[in-house]
Design a protein around this nucleic acid. Structure first.
Length: 419
RNA sequence: GUGAGCGUAGCCCAGCGGUUAAGGCGCCAGGUUGUGGCCCUGGAGAUCGUGGGUUCAAAUCCCACCGUUCACCCCA
C-alpha cells in the first residue's frame, strides 16, 4: 500500500475548509495593504538558497532537498519563500517599478527534517515582502500586517517580539563581544552551545537549557552595540508601531534562523506556547538582493507557516466557514426518469445551479439518504407522475416540505432559493 | 542526526501467549406499494505496520526495519 512520503500529507476535502479560510484571509489582507500576488517555481537553481540562506545553519548542509536534473543542473526544492521572490524581482526588472514593490505568495516549501508538531517536510508558507525601500515605516507596516493577519483569523491572543540585529557594520562588532563573553564560560555551557559558539553565535542567546540561560542573561545585548544608523532605524520602527497602536515586546535575545536578516527582526507567537509555537516571523534583509547579484536593495518581509496557523485554529476551537455545498440533489425512480433527470441536471447547471446527480440503481430511499448525508438543502425527485405532468418534485430537506414545480420554472425557483 | 511513546477494518478502539480477532462511528441493503434525518435487522470491510525470531501455539514475547507522535538539534 502506498503512503504519502514521510513528513507530507494529503489535504482531504474536509480539511480544505481551513486552508481556504486561511488563504482567503491572506489574500484579502494583501489586497487591503496593496500587496500583489506572485508565484515562483517549486524548485530553483540550488544557489538561490545556498548563497542566501547559508550562514551557520543546518539548512543547507542537512535540510535542503537538492538534486541534479537530467542535464546535470543542481536544483533545490523551494526551501523558503523570500529568496525566490528576490530572484524574480531581479530577473524581471521589478526595480524599474515605483519602489517599494509589494508582493505576496502562498505555496509549498520543503525541508528535510524529522516531522513533529507543526513541522513537516512539505509545508506551506504565506509571506509578503516589500522590496526596494529602507524606510522604517515599511518595517512597521509589515509588522502591522502580520498582526492584522492573525487577528483577522481570530488568533488575537498573540505576542509580537521585536529586536534589531544590526547590519554588516555593527553586527560583527557585537559578535566579537558576545564570543568574548561566552569564552569565559566555555566549560559550563552545553555541547550544543559549544558548537553554536563557532557556528552560529547569535543562537547562543536562545538556548533552552536552564544552565545556559543564566549565561545568556548576563550576555551583552546587541541593541547596545548597534551603529548609529541601525539605532535610528530601530527607534523609528518602534515609534511608528506606537503611532499604529501596535503593542510589542522588545526581546534582545530574538534572532532569526536565516542568515540574511539585517536590522529589524520580529516574531509572532501565540500566548499559549508549546513546542514549535512560533506562528510566523520576519524582518529586514537589506543584503539579500545584492547577494543574488543585484544592486544593493533594501527589503523587509514576513512569512508564516499555514500548518501551524491551522493547528492553532483547531486548538482554540475556532470554527471556519464550511465549503459551499451544491444547491440541490436530483433523484429518480426508474430508467425513464433517470434519462429525464440527466437532461434536467444538465440544464440546471447551465443555469448556474450546482447539483449532484444520483447514480446507480439505488432505491429512492437510498438516494434520499445520500442527499441527506451530503447535507444538501434541496432534493429534486423525478418519477412517472412528475414526467407525465411536466414538473419535478422539490423537497426542502430541512423542513421536509415538498411541492411540484413546473419544469420550466425550476431553474428560476432554485435561483430564488439561493438568495 | 539524538532520545522517548505508539502502530488491530476508512475512523475511534477492545483483546496483551491458546477455539471462527469484539464493539462503536461510517459505508451498503432491508423494515411491503415513489422519499432522508430517530429506531430496528442484516451485510460488506482486518495479510492484527513489514520482515525475521522464541514457542506445541503469537495481534499478544524478542529483534530489525518502516510509519507515526512528542521532545532535542534546526526552524515557519
Amino acid at each position: 500500500m502506498h503512503k504519502a512520503p514521510r513528513g507530507t500529507f494529503d489535504i482531504l476535502p474536509q480539511e480544505y475548509a481551513y486552508w481556504k479560510y486561511v488563504g482567503d484571509r491572506a489574500a484579502s489582507l494583501c489586497q487591503l495593504y496593496g500587496y500583489q500576488p506572485l508565484s515562483t517555481p517549486v524548485f530553483e537553481d540550488a544557489q538561490i538558497f545556498t548563497k542566501t540562506v547559508a550562514g551557520g545553519t543546518d539548512i543547507v548542509d542537512k535540510e535542503m532537498y537538492i538534486f541534479e536534473d537530467k542535464s546535470g543542473q543542481e536544483l533545490a526544492l523551494r526551501a523558503e519563500g523570500t529568496a525566490p521572490v528576490c530572484r524574480a524581482y531581479l530577473e524581471h526588472g521589478l526595480f524599474n517599478l515605483p519602489q517599494p514593490v509589494r508582493l505576496y505568495y502562498i505555496g509549498p516549501t520543503f525541508r528535510y527534517e524529522r516531522p513533529q508538531a507543526g513541522r513537516y517536510r512539505q509545508h506551506h508558507q504565506f509571506g509578503f515582502e516589500a522590496l526596494g525601500d529602507a524606510d522604517p515605516a515599511l518595517d512597521a507596516e509589515i509588522i502591522e500586517m502580520a498582526r492584522h493577519f492573525f487577528c483577522s483569523l481570530g488568533l488575537s491572543q498573540t505576542i509580537t517580539h521585536l529586536n534589531s540585529i544590526g547590519c554588516k557594520l555593527c553586527r560583527p562588532r557585537y559578535l566579537a563581544v558576545l564570543k568574548q563573553h561566552y569564552s569565559s564560560y566555555i566549560d559550563s555551557i552545553c555541547p550544543d552551545c559549544q558548537a553554536r559558539l563557532v557556528k552560529n553565535p547569535l543562537r547562543l542567546l536562545d538556548c533552552k537549557k536552564v544552565s545556559c540561560q543564566d549565561i545568556a542573561k548576563t550576555a551583552p545585548q546587541i541593541t547596545d552595540y548597534l551603529c548609529r544608523e541601525c539605532q535610528l532605524h530601530f527607534h523609528s520602527v518602534q515609534k511608528y508601531l506606537g503611532v499604529m497602536g501596535i503593542s510589542f515586546q522588545l526581546n534582545p535575545k530574538l534572532v532569526r534562523g536565516l542568515d540574511y536578516y539585517t536590522r529589524t527582526v520580529f516574531e509572532v507567537e501565540p500566548r499559549e506556547q508549546g513546542g514549535q509555537s512560533t506562528l510566523g516571523g520576519g524582518g529586514r534583509y537589506d543584503n539579500l538582493i545584492e547577494v543574488l547579484g543585484g544592486k544593493p536593495t533594501p527589503a523587509v518581509g514576513f512569512a508564516a507557516g499555514l500548518e501551524r496557523i491551522i493547528l492553532n485554529l483547531k486548538n482554540q476551537n475556532l470554527d471556519v466557514p464550511a465549503l459551499p455545498k451544491p444547491d440541490a440533489f436530483i433523484a429518480y425512480l426508474d430508467e425513464e426518469a433517470k434519462n429525464e433527470a440527466i437532461r434536467i441536471a444538465s440544464e440546471l447547471r447551465k443555469a448556474g445551479i450546482a447539483l449532484i446527480m444520483a447514480t446507480g440503481d439505488r432505491s429512492l430511499r437510498g438516494q434520499m439518504r445520500q442527499a441527506d448525508s451530503l447535507g444538501i438543502a434541496y432534493a429534486l425527485i423525478l418519477g412517472e407522475q412528475e414526467i407525465s405532468k411536466h414538473n419535478v418534485m422539490l423537497r426542502d430537506m430541512r423542513s421536509g416540505e415538498q411541492k411540484a414545480i413546473p419544469l420550466a420554472e425550476i431553474a428560476g425557483f432554485l435561483k430564488q432559493l439561493k438568495m
